[in-house]
């Protein structure tokens, strides 16, 4: 299989736009039929079960965390970072490839002031709703129908950010 080398970046407005987001930087050289994406759904299912069973989607757990009255959430996030970091080190050391043979590339995150301002705003919302974006999906799935309103306004918030981002300090 041909190596997916990092191409000398030709100006690609689409890529430029997508890569404003930390996670939207992958441009696979391979074309797959749509159902290949179901492998992500499969792990997503696992993830959703973990969210519910570890009670990460619970508003009460988030209150405990921000009140510093329980170790639970710190344990979850700490373990996740530890396992994630060890995996990243291993992947880099072993120069691991994807299951399709492509080189794994992890892009660095660029600093901008949005990480502070946006981070603070998200923190406020996290403590009110007891949910980050992932748990919003899981709360709806777990049968809390009214959370669809929270979700709707999270989408609205995202949209408004897109609308006024040029005028915000970054």
């Amino acid at each position: 299989m041909k190596d997916a080398k990092t191409p000398d970046p030709p100006v690609d407005p689409d890529f430029e736009q997508r890569s404003l987001d930390a996670v939207c930087v992958d441009e696979s050289q391979l074309q797959h039929p749509w159902w290949h994406n179901l492998k992500y759904t499969a792990w997503g299912l696992m993830f959703g079960v973990v969210f519910v069973k570890t009670e990460i989607i619970s508003w009460f757990r988030i209150q405990e965390m921000f009140r510093f009255e329980s170790f639970h959430m710190y344990g979850v996030i700490g373990t996740a970072v530890l396992v994630g970091a060890m995996s990243v080190i291993l992947i880099k050391r072993l120069k691991a490839r994807t299951m399709h043979g492509e080189t794994i590339v992890i892009h660095p995150k660029e600093f901008n002031k949005g990480q502070i301002y946006g981070g603070l705003i998200f923190g406020l919302g996290w403590a009110i709703t007891g949910a980050c974006p992932g748990p919003l999906f899981a709360q709806m799935g777990a049968g809390f129908g009214a959370i669809s309103i929270t979700f709707l306004f999270a989408v609205v918030g995202t949209w408004v950010y897109g609308l006024i981002r040029e005028r915000l300090p970054h």
């Binding site: 946006g118 603070l120 998200f122 949910a131 980050c132 306004f153």
Partner: peptide
């Protein structure tokens, strides 16, 4: 609350998963 979550995560360029877990892991 929902608005802050959506607006803030996009402004920050990520949420607990993208920054706290993926970013810190790297």
């Amino acid at each position: 609350g929902g608005f802050c979550v959506g607006f803030g995560t996009r402004y920050a360029g990520g949420c607990t998963s993208g920054h706290a877990i993926m970013g810190l892991s790297n």
